[in-house]
Design a protein around this nucleic acid. Structure first.
Lengths: 226, 226, 226, 226
DNA sequence: CATGAATGAGAGTTCATTCAT
DNA sequence: GATGAATGAACTCTCATTCAT
């Protein structure tokens, strides 16, 4: 299970035994993958329902129909489960952003892509929790340097479509980076305030606030374009 | 283990029973208050040094010179301690904002007051933790409805000076509310990204990003003012 | 509980409250000590009956009439329990050696003191286990450098009476050290072989073997004395 | 994960079904034997590197290129592995003793053979662990009565050369048995004290102590010989 | 008010072993 | 013979909280 590199060690094709070996390995690999995802589903459900504290290994195992020890055949630690969960969350984020309509003029495209990003987290607040969990307090095992870099990349990728749309406002690379960062900052702030319920202090509605920010942004860029 | 505060508990000589009940209550209240704050100091220190996980009741009690059980004479639960800590944190925030220079033109005043707010959390990231802790996951005991409202009010108050400065741009009440909210949103987003280290993804510096936002804000308001 | 140094902080005697405080502390200290020993008794019994593997914290707690967590009020870790057990074992060893008759000539005294040492471990084989346990495999918490030194000292002390008796054979300090070490070595070897049942391989009886060694030793020393 | 021994499992070409059952059994037995030893090698390596605690079935299996379950085709339990390991350790011990020079006079031969025994365990402390492990705490499966007798015999055999050398001091059988036992006792004691580091208490060096014992022994026997 | 003792639930993790395939 | 999956019991230790004294 650990040595996935072994898959390259399969015998040359042709011999019947070798082929059946391949088939068996393929089948077991697929099943293992399926079970991994079963556990991940259980973990996500537990985490979404009970929060970080409640989603213990025992709880996850129970929901997945396993004994606690069995989980460790698939994930080396609790943190690794959360890392996998976050990775998959970012994949869904990217999918949602990618599927947002990319036609229309620059302003429309920025609006579309940024909203796709924003809506993902607004509609799935637990994914926001997930992000904060690993990006904040985890150090010991879960978030190795490579994993950290990998997750960062996925996050960047999710903002790439927006960045590209901004490009069409005749921005240079540096200005584009600045603007997409500022936009990201604004969205994160909004999401946090929605999530913690603090936006109510100001009796403002979040979607309106994002729309406003985007309006001002495009207006500003258009004016600068002249 | 004796509280060091006990040294003050030796009754003053003379007329031990002559005092009025009121006086005795006052003295008792004061002492209780003093010890409450002693515990809060310990809790803050523990929390700042060890984070949320490390600041257990044991740890807080030890630092305060108490046994764990004694804490419950002053706070009903761990959450209540954190609530008190957050309240006090917001007080410090308000003090810092209040002490920011309030002279100059509208733009300068907005900048000054908003920066005071921002800098407080940038320089004291544990206070940010504190805010998120209670404003997020706590329901059972710690954050009663009244307390929640009270903390919201303190947060509002911390943004009030900024709001007032915005007023001088000839904004009506509604527009002012919108703008201060958006500014708050932006600052929260920035703080979160600094705190989680994600701002590095974009190779941007946070203070610069705030300055930029404020520049654009004042420029926009000045243009609208004409 | 941790700060035993606090006992020096008691108020000056005379005031009635102070005295009752002293009394209370004394009483609680005594009770705590008693409970510590109760746990130690349970631990010793568990260890003697079930061996090292079986004497888990759960088992010890159960035998002491406690929940597992309660044990940690008295001992910081499992290893600390074993260290305490070993310390106490060495105390008993020293007592037994001390109570062995110290009269007669040099040869008789050596025999008496060495036999007292030997018999202690022959009659209490679990104490031998205890010694080997900590002197062998424990590193992480249980056997700090000071503790190690302290236990070594107790062991030395248990052999001191024998060493002193050897002195009367007109040995210089160095020769005396060599002889007591060799005697210790021989006793340890015998004890180990008795304990593991391997002495049977040779169809020899242990006490006889020790007597023989001692005879040869005294004979040799007497011959050297001329 | 494939066993590396599998490379030898490709049947020789030609007459695949022509072999007799006996031949096949022989071949199978040999292969099984070979794999058993492969596992034992892995177990020994694991045990030597990681000690008794670290050498789990998982670890042994991993090093042998097997999954944990596969081990149970060759060994009924963990204890059985250790028993086999001990048997093999005693074989190595005997080989080392046998290869020690057996010429010279009686005193020289005793010295040579006894030192060979002693040095084996002094230089391979893990083999000492192995001996103690099974000879001490194991009862359930690992050490059956026959096995125990068999191991005892191997131990005896390792001391036989020394006993034979002692014979040449004109000792009768009984006296010879006594002397070889005493010598064994002394060596065991020394090895234990070296292994646990307790020899340092007395600031003595182990090899010197053995040499001294042997000197005194031969001198005594020579004197008795007159 | 404060102590010291204790609870009880629970945490993450490890392990030898079993067994259908 | 070997795999991969799973068991189930066990491990040490931590924690917020309660309560008689």
């Amino acid at each position: 299970m650990k040595s996935s590199a072994d898959t390259t060690a399969t015998a040359a094709p042709g011999a019947p035994e070798a082929r059946s070996d391949d088939a068996r390995r393929l089948r077991t690999d697929t099943m293992a993958q399926r079970r991994r995802e079963l556990i991940l589903d259980a973990a996500r459900a537990a985490f979404f329902e009970l929060g970080l504290q409640g989603a213990s290994m025992r709880e996850i195992a129970k929901r997945a129909g396993y004994t606690p020890g069995a989980i460790y055949s698939y994930f080396a630690s609790r943190e690794e489960i959360y890392a996998a969960l976050l990775g998959e969350s970012l994949l869904r984020l990217n999918a949602q952003v990618a599927s947002a309509p990319g036609d229309g003029n620059a302003a429309e495209r920025v609006r579309s892509k940024a909203s796709a990003f924003f809506d993902f987290y607004r509609d799935n607040p637990r994914d926001l929790d997930l992000g904060f969990y690993l990006f904040q307090g985890v150090r010991p095992n879960g978030l190795t340097r490579e994993l950290d870099a990998q997750l960062n990349e996925q996050l960047r990728a999710a903002l790439q479509p927006t960045a590209e749309a901004l490009r069409d406002f005749d921005l240079n690379a540096s200005a584009c980076e600045t603007e997409v960062t500022a936009l990201f900052v604004h969205m994160v702030g909004l999401l946090v305030l929605i999530h913690t319920g603090r936006i109510r202090i100001f009796r403002q509605h979040a979607p309106q606030l994002l729309a406003q920010y985007l309006d001002q942004l495009t207006e500003r860029l258009q004016r600068a374009g002249h």
